[in-house]
Design a protein around this nucleic acid. Structure first.
Lengths: 173, 173
DNA sequence: TCATAATGTGTGAGTACTTACTTATAATTG
DNA sequence: CAATTATAAGTAAGTACTCACACATTATGA
């Protein structure tokens, strides 16, 4: 992948994340990337193709992130890693995360499939720890973590930080 | 407010909710409402003005909905009403709710101000019930309820229904 | 080894179509 | 008849995408 090709991808990611897919015209992406507009279409065929390329990267990134948790064999560690995950997100990755939330609602790209193995692992952990209704516990915690992640992206880490130790206490971690 | 004026509003609400603000051109709204395109601009000045008019209605609707909870004096009842609220949303109001979520991310219209009195009331209820960290409890429950509401809108009531009794049990209601 | 063909990267100027908004003018209402 | 509601036909700017062409890199073959 050439340098300009990567620049297109990162510019599109940033602009889609901050302004939304439909709100960003391709000429704006080109300008931001310091590239002729035609090059976008040479490399990615059309605007949708550009988004798809970003989504592929996103899928890989998300998979890598959750792999760490899914591989964990100690159920307590699974919960601990899951809960602390959103608080560890780096500022440099905000665009990436913001885009996930934006697309979920703007284009109704679910992201559910991506999450399912993670939720399953949560359920497994709750089961191991003797919780009564592991599936519901897992879905509940997932809602919670998504809410916290969204809060961090929109209002900053500080707005949600107090919830970290609070949650860990709640789950006896 | 004339009949056509209302039709414009309801059509715009439906289309914005299902497809997103930026994805829906004004001529499509006019066609859907059975109205000439110019009429939209006569009544609402521009596309943003049309959205603003919807948002005013939304604010009133949300305020009315939460008023019921905020007026409640029994803390247990406050929690009960808050938790059951998302499960009581009628299908006819899905567009309205979906738009809230869509705009929150597509246009970054927070909706936080709308919610604050509700969150404050949750905090009050937790305080009354002797919870240790009422503020964090309130924010946690709010995240949870938003997650559930979002789930209902995207995946249907059935997908989240089991969580209702589960949550009520968790909070001893 | 070196001309040359082939392929891939990149540009800038289009093009066909869409989109938000305007305006002149008609119909309706009070 | 005065004001308001409504329309149909614009218009200027924007938008996704194409295309002809230039430049660079690599592959081929005498």
């Amino acid at each position: 992948m050439t340098e300009k090709q990567e620049k297109i991808l990162s510019s599109a990611l940033e602009l889609f994340a901050t302004e939304g897919y439909n709100a960003v015209p391709t000429n704006k992406i080109a300008k931001h990337a310091g590239v002729s507009e035609g090059l976008i279409f040479r490399h990615y065929k059309n605007k949708q193709g550009l988004l798809d390329a970003i989504l592929v990267q996103a899928f890989e990134k998300a998979t890598a992130l959750y792999a760490h948790i899914i591989a964990e064999q100690d159920p307590k560690q699974v919960l601990w890693k899951a809960i602390t995950l959103p608080f560890e997100v780096k500022k440099s990755e905000y665009h990436f995360w913001k885009l996930q939330f934006k697309l979920k609602w703007e284009l109704e790209i679910s992201g559910r499939e991506k999450m399912q193995p993670f939720i399953d692992k949560l359920q497994w952990a709750f089961e191991q720890l003797g919780y009564d209704e592991s599936k519901k516990e897992a879905e509940l915690l997932n809602h919670l973590l998504e809410g916290i992640a969204g809060g961090i992206i929109k209002e900053g880490l500080d707005s949600q930080a107090p919830l970290k130790s609070f949650l860990l206490k709640k789950y006896n971690l």
